[in-house]
Amino acid sequence: MDLSAINPILFVAGFLIAATPLIFAAIGELVVEKSGSLNLGVEGMMIVGAICGFATAVETGSPLLGFAAAAVGGALLSLLFAFLTQVALANQVASGLALTLFGLGLSALLGQSYVGIKPPRLGDINWGPLADIPVIGPILFTHDIILYLGLVLVIAVWAMLKYSRMGLVLRAVGESHDAAHALGYKVKRIRTAAIMFGGACAGIGGAYISLIRVPQWTEGMTAGVGWIALALVVFASWKPARLLLGAYLFGGITQLQLNLQGAGVAIPVEYLAMSPYVITIVVLVILSRDKSAAPASLGRTFHASS
């Protein structure tokens, strides 16, 4: 065993990157679920975002345009879900699952000519002298703009839900769509907007994997991150701060177990491999002992006549 082989600074900087796709996907889904819709298509929207972002970045040479395209791609795909569930009043679980299957297939089709290409690199933000601060500098100030955008987004969503009128309306729709409807709020319009926001976030999360974390295009490359994001929203009891904690915990322990294995720590590898899932769930379950139930209308179909 040689723990000194693990460089703590590189390790922390690494797990901030590993957690970012999860943060984007989960915070988007959190807003969707707060509005009362359950979109299980996160994985599908992420993978479509991953290829839309990758293709656009390669064609235009601009990673930022890639991320924008990823957001558009994810939102467009989520619009399909919105149509199925809000207009056609289809079952949300089935529609979400279908969206994932469709997204995986569509992305494989779109990505056929992009296998083995290296995308343009999104540079790190230049923080000037801040990056020279020992320890903190390399950990916090050597990242790309999207990573910081993820953090800002979590704070913005938290503030929006807690303090703004928009957040109040969104929560009202999610808690009781009949009451919100009676008050004159456009339930379907609000939900559709939330679903599209969720799709855009998932798309950016997917593009973060294909443009920064891996960086390449491979079919099925999101490999289940969307499902983890879905679980994370529930275990974080629909609270942005806990969601952030959960994402860092998950990303951190995933990185840690790989590093510990490389350093030859004498813990059986099976335990290390399952540790991110177990620890994240245990911590978040303990945190959510207080009363914090799901939005009351989550997953229920709304029709104005009923």
Binding site: M221, N259, G264
Partner: peptide, 27 residues
């Protein structure tokens, strides 16, 4: 030899992370 068991045949993000962890440790 530093060996990392990924417990997957195919997971690009995890494989990339494993490679980075090994590179960080001097491989």
């Amino acid at each position: 030899f530093k060996i990392i068991w990924a417990y997957t045949w195919f997971d690009p993000a995890k494989e990339a992370d494993a490679a980075k962890a090994l590179i960080d440790q001097g491989a």
